[in-house]
Design a protein around this nucleic acid. Structure first.
Length: 293
DNA sequence: TTCCAGGGGTAGA
DNA sequence: TCTACCCATGGA
């Protein structure tokens, strides 16, 4: 068991359950034990299961493994968990703003702000593409099949698999992704992305720590096939940049009802403008906004 | 059968 | 920059 410290204020449960990602393979959320698990391959080789739970001052992580893993492996676990749960991120400015808005008062109390993400940007781009123009239950199915069919299992629990790497997806036929994994027209997007990353042409992971201006990064994300305005904003959120709103059917519905009652046509521009005053915290203000009051 | 879901690409204006 | 149209999948 290792303890990874988090910047205060921190709530493990608030971070882990912040959005649907904790329900997408190879993540799993255990309601009874308030535990987040994830199958992960360490760069040194072994496939392990990480069991993450809240602990005083941070996150307690248990690493299940069939083989011994090295000190370097342990360092990777710390780095991955820290990235996934944003343990070092500073939300003090956002929390100060939340104190000025009744619909966001609970954010401070519940220590919200952190949104769960995958260890790699590749995984988050694929998952984001698989949320577009479909239902949540179909997204879960697509991700589950992708994980189960294309990657190696965890030896202590063969039903559990890691998320496939670009190199594992790249050689697959598009027809397989369409017919078996049932990604629909998203197949070509996922395949092109995997091939570009696997070949080294596209270095997605470097975008995790770039100081590139947000608008330029947004244009780069949108240049990926399958990534439009919604997906780009969602990915910027995952990268820790909250100044774009991901306008999807849910946002149109709740923002439309609350701020444009009775108006028949509300443009995406108008929807996004509602949260303009939140500046760099726009996405979080929208995400944690208490709609039912 | 038809509609639509946490949209995106493309063509054409 | 905006709009119309097409794109697959499966549940309601």
């Amino acid at each position: 068991m290792i303890l990874i410290p988090a910047r205060e204020p921190f709530s493990f449960v608030a971070a882990a359950r912040s959005h649907g990602w904790c329900r997408l393979a190879p993540f799993a959320w255990d309601d009874e034990h308030q535990e987040l698990t994830r199958i992960e391959q360490l760069e040194s080789g072994p496939v392990v299961r990480l069991r993450m739970a809240g602990a005083k001052g941070g996150v307690a992580v248990e690493v299940e493994s069939a083989v011994e893993f090295t000190e370097a492996g342990l360092a990777q676990v710390r780095e991955k968990v820290s990235w996934m749960l944003r343990l070092d991120e500073d939300f003090s400015e956002f929390h100060a703003l939340c104190r000025t808005e009744a619909a966001l008062a609970q954010v401070v109390e519940k220590k919200q702000g952190r949104l769960l993400r995958s260890p790699t940007l590749f995984e988050d781009v694929v998952k984001t593409i698989l949320t577009t123009n479909t239902t949540w239950s179909q997204t879960k199915g697509m991700v589950a099949r992708l994980v189960e069919m294309l990657s190696q299992p965890f030896s202590l629990d063969p039903a559990a698999h890691v998320f496939p790497t670009p190199a594992q997806i790249a050689p697959v036929d598009e027809e397989f992704l369409t017919q078996q994994v049932r990604l629909g027209y998203r197949s070509s997007y996922v395949l092109e992305l995997a091939r570009r990353v696997a070949s080294g042409e596209l270095d997605l992971e470097s975008w995790k720590h770039t100081d590139m201006e947000t608008d330029k990064l947004r244009r780069q994300l949108k240049a990926l096939k399958g990534v439009g305005d919604y997906a780009a904003a969602n990915l910027l959120m995952l990268l820790g940049r909250y100044d774009c709103l991901a306008v999807d059917s849910w946002a149109r519905k709740v923002i439309g009802q609350r701020f444009f009652p009775g108006k028949e046509r509300v443009s995406d521009r108008e929807i996004a403008a509602v949260f303009d005053r939140w500046g760099k915290w726009k996405f979080l203000a929208y995400w944690f906004y208490k709609w039912e009051t």
